[in-house]
Write a protein that binds this DNA or RNA. Structure first.
Length: 598
RNA sequence: GGCCCGGUGGCUCAGUUGGUUAGAGCGCCGCCCUGUCACGGCGGAGGUCGAGGGUUCGAGUCCCUUCCGGGUCGCCA
């Protein structure tokens, strides 16, 4: 039934034609968006990745055979049309880029017929994501997803061009690697040739790019696919892409400089956004104290205030107990929300509990100047007044407090601050606030493992002025590590790497690795360092998140062609799947599946 | 693993304190229509209410279990 395109050659995309093409005879090919049959005249909207084009069929132009075919056209048929570009004699369609013109068909061929799709192929889809992902090949026809992927392609091209001009060499690193537990779970790939052994897919090209520095490539860049077998989120997929770079003979400033110029170039190219340089910087300590987060959203205020000193010795046991346990009491001031209904406050308390808070203390400054508070009866009028003043509380404000271990207080208020800002629509969606967060702690204490773990990774260089603390007070050591944050989302991060073996050994020691452990896992890197290693540093930017934020998508799946769903499966291919016994036998793998009950 | 939200014709949704034969818009199918573009007119088809069990005279609605999708905490060096 379907016809061939023999003898025809496409002359342009549907959406690319303009008034400049009027008078030309063109051949266009694409999908039928919509057919409108008026009887003696038929309008067909054709669609390709460039946009829509109206084709007009009249029997006097195209002959009886083509007219009969035009009558048969249904949505998503693939057609080739030969015709002449004309200025519309009817009304102009303001909504279309091709709205001033149309193609008067002289011939049509039906290259492929189509069943009615399970959901409409149109922008701003209202269809359930489940269905869209099952038929992703249809969903990918929709103009908004197409625009996202086309923009993504443009961004990687811009990044490559920029990095090339800056003297970076793009080098591919292996997908099949040795597993180095520590950090995220690895995706494992069994080896057939070496039964019982496994490759691991890379969580990042970290070690390889450091080795490339040892090998003298000086400046490395890669659009790198990475894999982490962890649970998904709206901005997290098990496989994702990083704009990954590493540089030799540099320090923090050099990496920040080249990165922010790359980011600026990409933003300008992709969406015409001017990013002012230098990008604002904030130390990790300042970010935590002001925003309760190491990736603060600076598009709105409502910053945290430490009131530990103000409430010290007050009569409210929840506050004093937290302080005695070495924690702190901090609050946020929700301006003008003194009258927030009890029900909404309770919901916020529940929200805080989700982050591990035992509760939230609140205090409203009423219009008559009195305080309505969950803890008023435990405090004197003077204490309440001092607290309100410390919070810059004015009439009409709602003050919310958390008291606990400081890390928990930060996390609770940091999350609460964002939740409230969303509820009260305090966030300007047109803003793109970039921020560098610097001077991260080198280590963090792992309660479960009862030891320090690297906050970034074990090759991160301590700050020069904190080096001496590595022996005496490792928890206080700050690292030459930096994250770039956009609108409260961690866009990327990196660090200066340790290149002196004595510092590296000390680091492993603090992490509780024996020399044998260290060599077992990273021997090739440590050995490489013996043969002349340049000081080096690098960074990686999450490409998927970057694109997501630039197109204002609300999840990362909108900028990935074939994403996985929450449980890391693919609704279209149904991956992961079971494999043949023959394949398993080849790999000498026996399954030992546990019944999942309880 | 925990918590929260959702699942009703192809799509998006409505469905009251449990009560006749489960509705709407869009889409789809047929006929008509020479300037439509959210085309229009006339007619029509299409539903195991995610699945299983229970309560009840009676369940889309209440209860239990389970599957699927989303958000989030844990997790993500």
């Amino acid at each position: 039934m379907a016809e061939t395109m023999k003898g025809l050659k496409r002359t342009s995309r549907c959406g690319e034609l303009t008034v400049a093409n009027v008078g030309q005879t063109v051949t266009v090919m694409g999908w039928v968006q919509k057919q409108r049959n008026k009887g003696g005249i038929i309008f067909v909207d054709m669609r390709d990745r460039a946009g829509l084009l109206q084709v007009i069929f009249e029997e006097s132009d195209c002959g009886a055979e083509s007219f009969a075919k035009a009558e048969k056209l249904r949505s998503e048929f693939v057609v080739a049309v030969v015709g002449k570009v004309e200025k519309r004699s009817g009304a102009v369609n303001e909504n279309l880029s091709t709205g001033e013109i149309e193609v008067r068909a002289t011939e049509v061929r039906i290259l492929s017929e189509a069943e009615t799709p399970p959901f409409p192929i149109e922008a701003d889809s209202k269809t359930k994501e489940e269905l869209r992902l099952k038929y992703r090949y249809l969903d990918l026809r929709r103009p908004d997803v197409q625009n996202n992927l086309i923009l993504r392609s443009k961004i990687t091209t811009t990044a490559r061009t920029f990095m090339d001009a800056e003297g970076f060499v793009e080098i591919e690193t292996p997908m099949l690697n040795k597993s180095t537990p520590e950090g995220a779970r690895d995706y494992l790939v069994p080896s057939r040739v070496h039964p019982g052994t496994f490759y691991a897919l890379p969580q990042s090209p970290q070690i390889f790019k450091q080795l490339l520095m040892c090998s003298g490539y000086d400046r490395y860049f890669q659009v790198a696919k990475c894999f982490r077998d962890e649970d998904l989120r709206a901005d997290r997929q098990p496989e994702f892409t990083q704009l990954d770079l590493e540089m030799s003979f540099v320090d923090v400033e050099d990496v920040i400089d080249v990165t922010e110029r790359m980011v600026k170039t990409i933003c300008k190219d992709a969406i015409g956004l001017d990013v002012g340089l230098p990008i604002q910087r904030m130390t990790w300590a300042e970010a935590m104290n002001r925003y309760g987060s190491d990736k603060p959203d600076t598009r709105f205020g409502m910053e945290l205030t430490d009131v530990s000193k103000v409430v010290a010795g007050c009569g409210f046991g929840v506050f004093t107990a937290a302080l005695e346990a070495g924690g702190s009491v901090r609050g946020i001031n929700v301006k003008g929300q003194a009258e927030m209904p009890r029900k909404k406050i309770d919901a916020l308390i529940e929200f805080a509990k989700g982050y591990g808070a035992k509760g939230l203390a609140y205090m409203s400054i009423m219009p008559d100047g009195t305080y309505k508070s969950s803890f008023a009866k435990f405090m004197t009028e003077e204490e309440l007044k001092a607290l309100a003043e410390a919070m810059n509380g004015e009439v009409g404000d709602l003050l919310l407090f958390a008291a606990d271990k400081t890390a928990l207080v930060w996390s609770v208020l940091g999350a609460l601050r964002i939740e409230i800002a969303k509820q009260l629509e305090m966030i300007d969606n047109d803003k793109f606030n970039f921020l560098w967060v610097t001077e991260f702690p080198l280590l963090e204490w792992d309660e479960d493992a009862n030891r320090f773990v690297a906050m970034h990774h074990p090759f991160t260089m301590p700050m020069d002025e904190d080096l001496h603390l590595l022996d005496t007070d490792p928890g206080k050591v700050r690292a030459k590590a930096y994250d770039i944050v956009l609108n409260g989302v961690e866009l990327g991060g990196g660090s200066v790497r340790i290149f002196q073996s004595d510092v590296q050994e000390k680091m492993f020691e603090v992490l509780g690795f024996t020399k044998e452990d260290a060599y077992e896992r990273f021997g090739f890197l440590l050995n490489a360092f013996k043969y002349g290693v340049p000081p080096h540093a690098g960074l990686a930017i999450g490409l998927d998140r970057f694109v997501m934020l630039l197109v204002k998508a609300d999840n990362i799946r909108e900028v990935i062609a074939f994403p996985k769903v929450k449980d890391a499966s693919c609704l279209m291919t149904e991956a992961p799947g079971v494999v043949d016994d023959i394949q398993l036998k080849d790999l000498q793998i026996a399954l030992d599946l546990q019944e999942v009950n309880e």
